[in-house]
Amino acid sequence: MYRIRFHGRGGQGIKTASRILGSALFAEGYEVQDAPRYGAERRGAPIFAYVRADRAPVYERGIIDHPDLVVVTDESLVQVPAAAVMTGLCDRSVLVIASAAEPELWQQRLGVTCRVLTLPPGPGEGAALMGAASVGAAAKLIGQISAANLEGAIRAELEGLPSDVIERNVGRALESFDSFESHAGCVSEGEALTRASATPPAWVELEVEPTSISAPAIRGEATSEQVQTGLWRTMRPVIDDSLCNHCSWICSTLCPDAAIDVGSDREPIIDYEHCKGCLLCVAVCPSHAIVVEPERAVDEHRSDP
């Protein structure tokens, strides 16, 4: 059975990559199971996804402890303990990291004995195509997937998206597929599950403990203030002072996150550290005094010298 793990961040197309690889293996006649696994459903949060493929029905489920192939689309994840990128790597595993650095450097840094390959991002390439690049690499390294079936799986998975997006992804995946030609088929199928190879679990007996530590209370107060939910925003509401009539209550009352305060002159003040960018205020403002700006434009404007 092939056991493959993808690690990345929300928004990089990790779930999509795992589904494309799963579909391509299915098209090659494998029985397949693929699934994403994530906690917070938002951009930037670490997620992983896994694919199992075998000629016989797959009965294993859940987290892959002993991967044959691990693909990491964001090198910053390697240092994040919670991402558990390195879990279960052994000599015969293959590790692919999206990085401009040399594979040997990663091998030294990580102190691993398994084969390490890097997937350098294309010139000026953002995170958006890393999913496509990594699935192209994975398909070639497994060595059981034809370019045609890879392309078919991508087109099926991205159906409904604008055609230029689909073409860019197909192009990037096939380019990556070809670039790993010299490593074709270096990923081998892992062994079937055996009792002999399993380490017995270190179960513990839990004792009853005082509720001061055994009840799930983290903080007594101020938690919502300390969480910078403003980082979630992709669009921001901006108040146009020339149009705001200082009614003072509509936007501030209807803001679901209480992120609009009212100043001494009854002027609304947006708390950008906590505004999630739902833009409800834009919809309800009777004088249309709140406009929408993309966060990226704001950042670029700010970083202008």
Binding site: P201, A202, W203, V204, L206, I213, A217, I218, R219, G220
Partner: peptide
Amino acid sequence: RLLFQESELREVRKLQAIAHHER
């Protein structure tokens, strides 16, 4: 028997230490 391992208890102890500090 609760299926719960030493490594999991260690994780919980870390969380409890953070919670204690934050409190």
